[in-house]
Structures are given as structure tokens and as C-alpha cells.
């Protein structure tokens, strides 16, 4: 593995498989145990550096680090593009002085983790940067798919929604392709980036056409604000054309699953009855997030040779 996990492309197929296998072994080792804690990273310091609110991602990383006995520091630096606080570089130097072995960074700016990696000696884990990537989300999604369907190779994954602004979509396209899955993106053309044609994915505009050929449907969160920028005319029209409701879910193959990275807009991109159905993996995704991130932290920190 590389020293940092900044984007899905940092993982080749063997690395990605190692992360998933390790997560599975951790899950198995901890299953049914009263003490869900391992001494692996005792004496290591993991800093959660969050420039953007994301309670769920932060808690997931925090739990992962704590279950491996690392010391966890939460560093919330809510400098935005508007309110400029301490610079990223100064913060990096501070963390460096504290001796952080790993920095888990969430940032509103695409590429901020790449910048950070130039300035700290520890491992940098990208916990979501702007509209770029969110690689651990892709890992937990791949883990969830493998757990449910037993494989990733040849699995047909359809990602639906605001691909343009989605770091989850970017990481999933990259990682799932690496792992042999066939990815199709479905969105209104306004929410697909110019240049999406160069991605290793099929692109379509018609959700109903691809559902019968989908083993996995991954619904992306669509923010209603996009409507005001004319990405689509109205929430109702979006929901009608790209929302997953019970009727559409019925068009899926029998064992197909429905995923969502959260937080959901029930009634917008996903109907409540779909979110709560047996096909939905939304709760598993949260649980799998912890073991996947434990695996990542273990593999990045467990044995960095000095």
C-alpha cells in the first residue's frame, strides 16, 4: 500500500482486496465479542481534521481508531472559503509537531488532502475532499456489495444522481472498476461532468432502462439547492425521473440491492419504502464503515517501517 489514501487510484486491485479481506477478518474477529477493542495501534495518534461538518464520517473514523487503541484527537477547523482561519499549512505544521501518525482529513476543497500530504510525515487519509473523492466510502460500499452478493467481479453497479458534485461517485467509479465491477452512471445530463466519457463507466440518462440490468443501485444524495442553479427544473420532476420508488425497485433483479451513502433525502432520490426495504443496505453500510476504516488504519499505520 501507498503511505497515504488520497483517492481510489491509490489502491490497485491487490491493495483494495487486501483492505476488504482485512476488514472481513476484523469483523469476524470482533463478532460477538463483549470487548470490541484491539491493542494494535496502541501508542499511535490519529488526528481527525475536519474542515467540514460530517458527524457520521468523523464518528466512524473515531470509532475505528479507538477500536484499534489509537489515541484520537478531533480537530475541527471550520475555516471555509469565506471565513479564513489558520492556513492549511500552518495547521499541518501544528499536527506535525504533535506527532500525528495519521491525519484523517475532511475538507471542502478538492485536493486539500493532497496538499496536506506534502506537509506532514504521517499518513493522510482522505475522508472526503470537495467534489473530488471519498475513498473509504467506496471501500465500505465495495465491502457491503461483496458481503451481500459474494463477489465484485462482474457485478453491475448503477450509480444514480448528482455525479457532478459527488465525491462518492468519483471514488466508487474508480474503485469498483479496479475491483472488476461494471459501473453505469445515470443522471440528468446537467449533473454529469463534461469529461465523464473518459471514466471507466457507462453513462445513461434513463433510469428505467438500466434497472433490470443492475445488481446494485447506488442512490446519491441530491441537494435541493441544485434546483436553484437550474440543474433540474423542480424536486418533483427530479424525483419522477431519477428517484427510486417501489415501482422502480420492482424492476430490479431478485437479489439486487439498494445502497445510499447517506444522509438520505427521503422522498427525493429515494422513497421511504425503498430505504427501509430488505434490499436496502443503508444500515449495513454504516456498520461496515467502521471495520473498513479499521482495516485502512491498520494497513497504513500497523507497520509503517521506520
Amino acid at each position: 500500500m501507498k503511505r497515504h489514501l488520497l483517492e481510489a487510484a491509490d489502491l490497485d486491485r491487490d491493495d483494495a482486496t487486501l483492505v476488504l479481506d482485512t476488514a472481513a477478518q476484523i469483523d469476524q474477529a470482533l463478532a460477538g465479542r463483549e470487548v470490541k477493542k484491539l491493542p494494535t495501534l496502541r501508542g499511535r495518534t490519529v488526528v481527525n481534521l475536519f474542515y467540514e461538518d460530517s458527524t457520521r464520517t468523523r464518528i466512524s473514523f473515531e470509532l475505528a481508531a479507538k477500536r484499534l487503541s489509537a489515541d484520537v484527537i478531533n480537530f475541527s477547523a471550520k475555516g471555509s472559503s469565506v471565513s479564513k482561519g489558520e492556513s492549511l499549512k500552518d495547521t499541518a505544521l501544528t499536527l506535525e509537531a504533535m506527532g500525528a501518525d495519521a491525519v484523517v482529513v475532511r475538507h471542502w476543497a478538492s485536493g486539500a488532502p493532497h496538499r496536506l500530504a506534502n506537509w506532514v510525515r504521517g499518513s493522510v487519509v482522505n475522508a472526503g475532499d470537495g467534489t473530488h473523492e471519498h475513498p473509504t466510502q467506496a471501500l465500505l460500499d465495495a465491502y457491503t456489495i461483496r458481503q451481500r452478493l459474494g463477489r465484485l467481479d462482474g457485478v453491475r453497479v448503477t450509480i444514480v444522481g448528482d455525479v457532478l458534485h459527488s465525491r462518492v461517485a468519483r471514488s466508487n467509479v474508480g474503485l469498483l472498476h479496479t475491483l472488476g465491477a461494471e459501473v453505469t452512471l445515470v443522471a440528468p445530463p446537467t449533473l454529469l461532468p463534461v469529461g465523464v466519457g473518459s471514466w471507466p463507466a457507462e453513462v445513461g440518462y434513463d433510469l428505467d432502462a438500466v434497472l433490470p440490468k443492475s445488481d446494485v443501485v447506488m442512490m446519491l444524495r441530491v441537494q435541493a439547492e441544485r434546483m436553484n442553479a437550474s440543474y433540474f427544473p423542480s424536486a418533483r420532476e427530479y424525483s419522477r425521473r431519477y428517484g427510486l420508488d417501489a415501482r422502480r425497485m420492482a424492476a430490479l433483479p431478485d437479489d439486487a440491492i439498494v445502497m445510499h451513502p447517506g444522509p438520505m433525502n427521503r422522498g427525493m432520490e429515494i422513497a421511504a419504502e425503498v430505504a427501509d426495504s430488505v434490499r436496502s443496505t443503508i444500515v449495513e453500510q454504516v456498520a461496515n464503515g467502521v471495520s473498513t476504516r479499521m482495516a485502512v488504519l491498520y494497513l497504513l499505520l500497523g507497520g509503517s517501517p521506520q
Binding site: 461532468p193 465523464v196 473518459s198
Partner: peptide, 18 residues
């Protein structure tokens, strides 16, 4: 806009300048 809009901006997640 942050960079030229094309394949690279799509991948890097930087808003495109067409």
C-alpha cells in the same frame, strides 16, 4: 471555476472553466 473544463477537471473534482 478552478481549471479547464474537461476530462481532468471531471476527475479532479475541480469546477470547470469551459
Amino acid at each position: 471555476a478552478q481549471m479547464h473544463e474537461g476530462d481532468r477537471s471531471a476527475r479532479l473534482g475541480l469546477t470547470g472553466w469551459p
